[in-house]
Every structure is written in C-alpha cells, then in structure tokens.
Design a binder for these strands. Sequence first.
DNA 1: CTGAAAGCGCTTACAG
DNA 2: CTGAAAGCGCTTACAG
Lengths: 343, 343
Amino acid sequence: MPVPPTSPPTSPPTSRDVARLAGVSQTTVSYVLTGKGAISPATREHVLKVAESIGYRPNLAARSMRTRRSGRLAVITGVAYENQIRLLTGASRVAHDAGYIMETHSVDGTVEDRTDRVLELAAGGQYEGMLTFVPVLPAALSDGRSTPPVLAATAFDEKMHSAGELADASLLEVFVRALAAAGHRRFVHVAGNLEFTSARARRDVYLACVEQLGVESLGVLGGDWTAESGRQALLGLPDDAPPVAVIAANDVLAVGALRAAAERGWSAPGDVVVTGWDNAQFGAYTMPSLTTVDVDFQAAGRHAMQLLLATLRGEEPPRGSDLQRIVWRESTGAAHPAASGTA
Amino acid sequence: MPVPPTSPPTSPPTSRDVARLAGVSQTTVSYVLTGKGAISPATREHVLKVAESIGYRPNLAARSMRTRRSGRLAVITGVAYENQIRLLTGASRVAHDAGYIMETHSVDGTVEDRTDRVLELAAGGQYEGMLTFVPVLPAALSDGRSTPPVLAATAFDEKMHSAGELADASLLEVFVRALAAAGHRRFVHVAGNLEFTSARARRDVYLACVEQLGVESLGVLGGDWTAESGRQALLGLPDDAPPVAVIAANDVLAVGALRAAAERGWSAPGDVVVTGWDNAQFGAYTMPSLTTVDVDFQAAGRHAMQLLLATLRGEEPPRGSDLQRIVWRESTGAAHPAASGTA
DNA sequence: CTGAAAGCGCTTACAG
DNA sequence: CTGAAAGCGCTTACAG
C-alpha cells in the first residue's frame, strides 16, 4: 500500500496530496470528486481509491470560497415551544440528505425582536436559505430576490392552503360537531398565542363552527401556550357554566383547564369535557386522559425543509401529506364517532 | 458620501473594496478588523467607517481557510428528550457570544449507533469541539489530542463531582428522608433510561438511601423515560403494596405512575405518594400536582458550553452553580420540611 | 479524456 | 505604523 513519503502527517490531506499520490493533476481529482468533468472510469476509480486510502475529505471552506456557495441553511426556533425538537430533527435530516449543513438559531423576545434577528441573519450572507418555526413579521419573509429565501413554517397555510399541514385546524371542527352531536350546547375556546398561525386557525375554525351549528359560545379565552393560561380561563367562567365543552388549542392548555375544573368541583368528563391538540405524551395519562390531535411534528419538519429546498432549486413545492389524526380519550366522555382505547 | 465607482453592486463587498475606498492596503483593513496589527487610531477609525458604510462583512469561508480554524462547534442531541431545547438554547447563546457557530446534530438508534455518528462527525474535521447531550460510549469522548475535544454533558458528574450539575441526584435523598420522616416505610424507584448518567445517579442515590434508612424497597422498576413505563411499574406492584412511596426518575414517569394508581383504585396522596423530576410544566396541573425537582436546563446548557470552551482554550473549567431546587406539591401529601404552594 | 493556470477573499510573516 | 506578496485548498474556464 503506497504511503505518502512526505513530511509528518500533521495536517489533513488535500486534493493536491491525492493528485500526487494518484499520479494525476489536481484538476482530475476535482472532477472525480465533484462528478463534473468527463473522466475515464479507470482514472476515476483509481483516484477514488487513493482518496479513500489516505482518508481525504474536501475542505469545505475552500470549496465554499470557490463556488461562492455556503451550503448552509439556518433554522430559527424559540425557547418556549416544546415540540420543536421534533420539527428540528425532521428538518435536519432532509437538509443533510440534500448536502446542506443546517444551523439552528434560537430567538426570543417580541415578534419585532425576532423579526430583526431574522433579518440580520439573512443579511449576514452566510446562508443560502432560512426557515423559521417561530412567528415573525412578513417583513422578514424575503421572496428570494436579493437576500436568501426565508420561509416561515408557521404560516404555510396562508400561502398554500394545503391540508395536512401544521396549522391546519380543520380537525377542530370534528371535535365541535361530535360534541354537539352528543348533546353539548355550550362551548368555550381556550386559544394559544395568536401570533401563531396555528392558534389563529384553531380559533377561526372554532368561531365558524359554533356559529354554523348555532350553539352557545362562552367566548375565546387564553391567549398563550401555558397551562396556567388554560387554568385561568376556566377559573374565570361563571358558576353556572357547566355543562360546557372546552376546546383548548393544545394539550398544555387543556391540562390547565382540567386542573381548574377539579379545583371548582366540576367533574370531567361530565360537567366539563375537554379537547386538546398535539398529543403530548402526558395527555394519555392525566385523569381523565385527553382527547387530542396527534401531529407528526417530525414529518412536518421534513416537509418544511423540503419546501425550502424546492424554493432554492426553483422547483414546484412538494405537497404535504396528512400529518394529523384525532385521538379520542376519556376527557370527551362518550362523544366520539368511533371509539378507541386509552393508553 | 463616497460611493464605489465600480461595476454593478452585484457581489458583496470584499476587504479589497474597503481598502480601495479607504485608500489603504488590504493588509491594513485586515489588521483593523482582526485587531491584530498596530494601526493608528485615525486609520483604524477611517477604515471602520468605510467598512460600515458599504456594509462590509468578512467572508467567513475565506477567513476560515486562511486561519485553518472553522469557528464551528457541534452539539449532539436526540429526538426523544424534551428538555433539550432549553439546553440547546443555553449552549447556543454561549457559543455565539464566544464567536462560534454552533450546529446541532440529532442522532438516534442504539448507543453504538450514536457513538459511531459522533466519531464520524469528529473525524470530519469541520468542528473545533463537540458537545453531546445524549449518552455515547466513552470511545467517542476524545481527550482533545488528534480529533477535536468531545464533551458529554450527560456525564459531567463522573468527571468533576460538582454539585448543581444536571446529573446531580442528591436532592433525591431529601425526598426519601422527608417521606421516611413523615412515616413512609415502603418505597419503590421508577428509573429512567440507565444509559443516562442522570438516571443511574438517581437510582444509586435511591438505593443508598433506602439502605441507609433501613426502609423497605420494592425494587428498581422502569428503565426508560416514558410515561407508559411509569404506568407499568405501578401496575406490576402487588395488591398489598400501599402505602408506598414512588420515587420516579422524572415527571413523565411520575404521571404514568399516578395514572396507574388511579386505575388500581389507589388514592394519591394517601395510598401512594409520588415524586418526579424536571419540573415539567404539566406537573403543576395534574391531580394531584407533582412534587418534583426544578432544573434550570438553560443554565445547564450554558454551563456545558462554557466547559467545552474552557477545554478549547486550555483554561480551568468554570464551576457550575446550583441548578436544582425541590418544588413540593400535592403528590407527596403533607410530607415536606417547608411547605410551598401548588400552581 | 486530462492538465496548467488563475482566482475565490482572506491573513500573516516580512520588509520598510 | 503601513504595504507587497504569498498562500490557505479548492473549482473551472481554457487549451490540448
């Protein structure tokens, strides 16, 4: 096995080392590695073998400088949102498979703060594209002209109305209808942070649905994603509110609502029925367990990244698949079309 | 204001552009920007002003190629662990403040799979250092010789025994002692995934503590971080187990245990008392609410990154501060030294 | 099918 | 205190 008769193996091998050892030019090595030039199969195989044997890996910085492409994508996330780790995982897989490096930036503060930060990162010129999972102002969403394209994964529905996406709230209508069919005549919505498209969509479906069915609504309460917000919403209801159906924007709000019901001596299900969203793990184990919507966050993350990639390549955006599915549990009592188990 | 009389402003300005406009050499620009050479205040200020005015930003790829430093750090995380978003946020802040770019890689599979992946990333030569929040085999933890240093944030305690770290389980002793003092004579531990140092540490403290106090132990059950595992643990207990104190390795396990108790008709607190860990948001809202340990994950993430940075710089590792604090709630009944509120 | 040469944008001895 | 020059490791017209 030919070993480089050079100086100490201190720095990693370069394409020049490969060329010298393989007895070809650096150009040929480059063509083999990038798969660009027309290289004879024999030469090609030989170069590959030599490269492999000395553990050659292209210097990405050098490549990036020549090609003027960073090969890097930024993903914006925030500290407060628990499900994002799964979104990130999905996005990361897709990005890496496409040959990109994905970096994550956590931003917080007001929506203006976050928008500024995103704008700043976009202007930095280090990224070929950006994806944000936290709400930002439309100003941050470039159309891909001068700055790199910035996509907001929380606003997909506004652009493409595709079913099955993260912010698709249509299953909430199934909740309200099933509950109404089971005899419920009074509803209340505990909303999430309305900066989120998903929170607005759930509220809107709720509002449209109670109106259409002609049932009573005690209003839209809540307004952030905390359990305490869900608790306060129920604590603020009049004493004669029950029987009431609580449509919460997610499971964390729902568990807060459940707690408040117990504190007020209201039974659940019975005086109060509750629905959540997200299928958080604990929801299957509360008393009563929570009826909810299972969301495939990892698939959502993958799809969001596929959308960004399609934008970069000027391709048609791929359609998303169904990411949501209702999980009926104890918190809605007998009110469900097709029963399914608890845990 | 002097505007470059050059060709269309297509590509971003380079240090050469700055030099030309400022009437100095590229060397001077570089010295000003890196703060290295001895440059007169006047020149310095002028260069800075020109650079600012044309929105100059150093090309990181070019800089990286010259300095042979990537300025990049990798952080390894996994899909299954919810608290990691806060760890990542803390780590990310510190890394950016230190001028590094932090990239996150999500790995999963067996511990061997994860170790392989970490090794592979380390060998890639793109990172100056790595930090992992998921367990890997010791083989992956380089000592910083040939490959970049790889630190495992899940194993801190094994190396430095510093109080207040993530895997510090000493507060578990407070739980057991307080419960024993309140009259409890029978305990059981629901362990987490024992690949995690934190899970092992909690189990070890539990074992040492029941032995020392001479109270009965129904054993160490569980073995992963899922609520179902907590539920099964309690479902497997003999009918005459109560009264029993359940020491769960985290809140998710604890909520599963609580659910199982209810399914068996055991009251909580009463027949069963339960402690958790992590202070997950839902824990304050379950019925009964969960006594737990609040962990400052963001501070833990910051500290983990500070440790990596200290290693890179050859400095003394900073000591961690106290990250943990017991939160007494309803699930332990009256058994606590100093009472505190529920929600 | 292959190679010599230029250049991406920076930093850093070295000389003055 | 400042500048001319070399070179980091690649890719890519261009010529053969």
